[in-house]
Amino acid sequence: MTASAEPMRSSGGSRLGDVFWRRPGLPVLVMLTPPVLWLGIVYVGSLLTLLMQSFYSLDDFSGLVVPEFTLSTYAQLLTPANFDIIRRTVVMAALVTVADAIIAFPIAYMAARYARGHWKALFYLAVMLPLWSSYLVKVYAWKLILAKEGILNWLFETLHLTPLLDLVLAIPGVGGNSLSVSSIGTFLVFVYVWLPYMILPTQAALERVPANLVDASSDLGGRPSATFRHVILPLAFPGIVAGSIFTFSLTLGDYIIPQIVGTSRLFIGQAVYAQQGTAGNIPLAAAFTVVPVVIMGIYLTIAKRLGAFDAL
């Protein structure tokens, strides 16, 4: 009986192999079907459901969602309070992206041009190491660092710069009682957390800058500043834009960092959480969620034209 089962299994496997051999595209179809279904149903389906919910409204009397097409929910986004949330989030995302690009470029340049062997491995380890630790641990650690009794305040006090810090914290809309409850603190934590996502694409782009072009610029009498402006920066710019996709989008949708470090002024992620969880206003929460999707759609279109995807 065992001997007869073996030929049956062999013949079944042979028939299946023959089918795959005659239809070369069939194995690819079999392997891609589960992830495509998952992407189509769970991801795209969720986005379509979200978009559909954003065109509903909330009945003020009963507190129930009215499943009828309306633009009144999107009109609520233009109210001063809600529009201020959107503006604040976009401005913070842009500032974080610019700051990360300024900090990341010299680090990436040193790694691409001068780091070799063990030093390059050490560079990758140093950049990736913060990503291996817990996201929440890093945020709470920064809350302690920025607190009034934290090490940063101690450093300002040691350097006799406390009056300068107090002057900055006194700026309306930017400061607060301490760095841990100010927009400056939120900005610093965002810059730190997303910095690796800017360094790696920038470093990859700088690796692809031909050394002979830099040498040719020097041979032709170009100063280092001119070489940087006309050779290095244009060729590395797609990598910077690629990194900005991560830093901008992650800041745009994050709600944990502003919840732990910063003021009581809301960001888009916090508004979505509050409207969906506390207020129960699902349509307005969905409309808020559509905002970063639209912004990132426009941003990715511009980034693609700038060649950012070639640097990823």
Results as ranks from 00 to 15, higher is better:
G269M: 05
A170G: 15
P201Y: 01
S54N: 04
I256S: 03
W21D: 06
W142F: 09
P7Y: 02
S4L: 09
L266T: 04
V42E: 07
Y299G: 10
Y56V: 13
L146M: 04
P210H: 03
F309G: 03
G13I: 10
T186V: 11
I184N: 11
F288T: 11
L51E: 06
P106C: 06
T162P: 04
L161K: 08
W21E: 09
M92F: 09
I295Q: 06
L161F: 12
A286S: 15
A287V: 10
E157N: 11
V272K: 02
F20C: 04
V193S: 06
I171V: 14
T186P: 10
G40N: 08
Y140K: 06
F83S: 11
T2R: 15
P7G: 01
A286L: 05
L167V: 08
I260S: 02
G280K: 01
L235W: 00
L284W: 05
G280F: 02
S178Q: 08
G12T: 15
L233V: 05
V191P: 00
L32I: 14
A104T: 01
P163N: 12
R22A: 10
I298G: 15
S10M: 08
G17N: 09
S10Y: 09
A112F: 00
G176H: 06
W194C: 06
L164A: 15
V181A: 14
T263R: 11
F246L: 09
S46N: 08
A141R: 02
V231C: 07
V36H: 07
T33V: 14
P224T: 09
L144G: 02
T89L: 02
Q53T: 13
G277I: 07
L252N: 04
Y140A: 01
A147L: 09
G40F: 04
S182Q: 03
V209Q: 08
K120H: 12
L300E: 02
A126I: 00
T301D: 03
Y43F: 14
F69R: 02
R208C: 03
S10D: 09
A147Q: 15
R88V: 04
V191W: 00
F123A: 00
G239L: 05
A205L: 09
Y255S: 04
T49P: 12
M8F: 07
G262R: 01
F309T: 06
A226I: 08
E157W: 02
V189F: 00
R9G: 13
D59W: 08
S217K: 01
R223H: 07
P224E: 04
Y56A: 14
S14K: 06
V96C: 07
A303H: 11
P196S: 06
N177P: 10
G117H: 01
L77V: 07
G297H: 07
A226N: 03
G40C: 10
P172C: 09
L159F: 10
R305L: 11
T227A: 12
D166S: 14
L37F: 12
V90K: 01
F267E: 04
R23F: 08
L146A: 05
P35C: 01
V191E: 00
T97A: 12
Y56C: 14
G173S: 11
A121M: 15
Q270K: 06
V181Y: 07
G176K: 05
D100K: 00
P238E: 04
F248T: 01
V193L: 06
V65E: 14
M1V: 12
Y74D: 07
M31H: 11
E207V: 00
S244A: 15
P24A: 02
F246M: 12
G253C: 05
